[in-house]
């Protein structure tokens, strides 16, 4: 079951729906009938990103397809290389359907810091999936910031070999209107001594819906794995919805794994405190949200990517005003 297969074969029965455990909160069956026509410029693999190089940063701009489009671009970071990557998904018009597969391979000692800024149209269906494999001693740090779509799913599946490799998988979603955003991660610890850190934060206003699914697997023999995962969500309206499923699947005994998950409203006391100091309530609310999401931005360790993330978040915060 995948959107890609359904698009390529034009068979709506292959769409994932709420009966598929991994898609229970991101039902595509209900929203994609009939399936869109595929864009005809390239057979099979349609949209290609524009790749440019900012000083020190590789930028891949992914334009939205006109109707339906699939893309498939692999990135290999060679042995010992250090790369900063921005994947920018641009919103298009109307009810387009995007399916992007962006596999990444990191060779021994390679380092990749990746920022994904996902902007999609309010009527779009967008599925972005990255399979990431690391060799020993590689570093993969990722931050995904998403603003949702009719259905938006950003999935990252990492194979972590342990052996000195390091993984950070962060994410944030800022949702308004009727938007939906799904961040799904799967972190597979396959070798000894692996460390991973994950922090995902989201805010859902109006009638939006935030979904987070994070699975940590520690295979037999992946001893000494140290994996932490935290998801915090804020609900800003009575009609918003947050669904979360952090999972631990552990087959080794010498491990330290933990996950935390909280859902709640803005802290009334903090709000009162700010208001009592003369800050109007809407401003105070925005400040608190900015601080909440700001922690994700501050964890990005490359200044140029951090600045890009900050400006993306600022634009989305404006949409939450009011």
């Amino acid at each position: 079951m995948s959107l890609r297969e359904a698009l390529l074969t034009h068979n709506a029965d292959l769409l994932p729906g709420r009966r598929d455990e991994d898609w229970r909160w991101t039902d595509l069956r209900g929203v994609l009938r009939p399936l869109p026509d595929m864009s005809t410029d390239l057979q099979g693999l349609t949209s290609r990103p524009d790749i440019e190089v900012l000083p020190g940063v590789i930028v891949r701009r992914h334009a939205a397809p006109v109707a339906g489009g699939v893309s498939d671009i692999e990135l290999v970071v060679a042995r010992g290389e250090v790369v900063l990557l921005l994947d920018a998904f641009e919103a298009g018009e109307g009810a387009y359907v995007r399916d992007a597969a962006l596999p990444i391979r990191l060779e021994e000692g390679a380092s990749l810091t990746r920022l994904v800024l996902a902007e999609d149209g309010a009527d779009a269906v967008s599925v972005i999936c990255s399979d990431v494999s690391l060799a020993a001693g590689a570093t993969f740090h990722q931050t995904v910031i998403a603003s949702g779509a009719r259905r938006q799913r950003i999935e990252t599946r990492v194979t972590h070999p342990g052996q000195g490799a390091s993984v950070r998988l962060d994410g944030a979603y800022l949702l308004s209107g009727k938007r939906h955003a799904d961040q799904t991660t799967r972190l597979d610890h396959t070798g000894p001594g692996g460390e991973s850190r994950q922090l995902v934060r989201g805010v859902a206003a109006d009638q939006s819906r935030g979904v987070f699914q994070g699975r940590i697997i520690v295979r037999e023999g992946a001893d000494g794995a140290d994996a932490r995962l935290t998801h915090n969500a804020l609900m800003l309206s009575e009609k918003a919805e947050i669904d979360a499923k952090p999972e631990l699947e552990i087959y080794a005994d010498d491990v330290a794994c933990a996950h935390g998950n909280t859902v709640g409203a803005l802290d009334e006391e903090a709000l009162f405190y700010a208001c009592a100091r003369g800050i109007p309530a809407p401003e105070a609310r925005l400040m608190l949200i900015e601080a909440f999401i700001g922690e994700i931005v501050e964890r990005i360790d490359e200044a140029v990517l951090q600045a890009l993330a900050r400006s993306f978040v600022a634009t989305r915060l404006e949409a939450l005003r009011g």
């Binding site: 609900m235 009575e238 952090p246 552990i250 935390g260 909280t262 709640g264």
Partner: peptide, 11 residues
């Protein structure tokens, strides 16, 4: 939105 949910797990 007024619900408050907390979950912690360790292995």
């Amino acid at each position: 939105a007024s619900a408050q949910l907390e979950h912690e797990a360790t292995t």
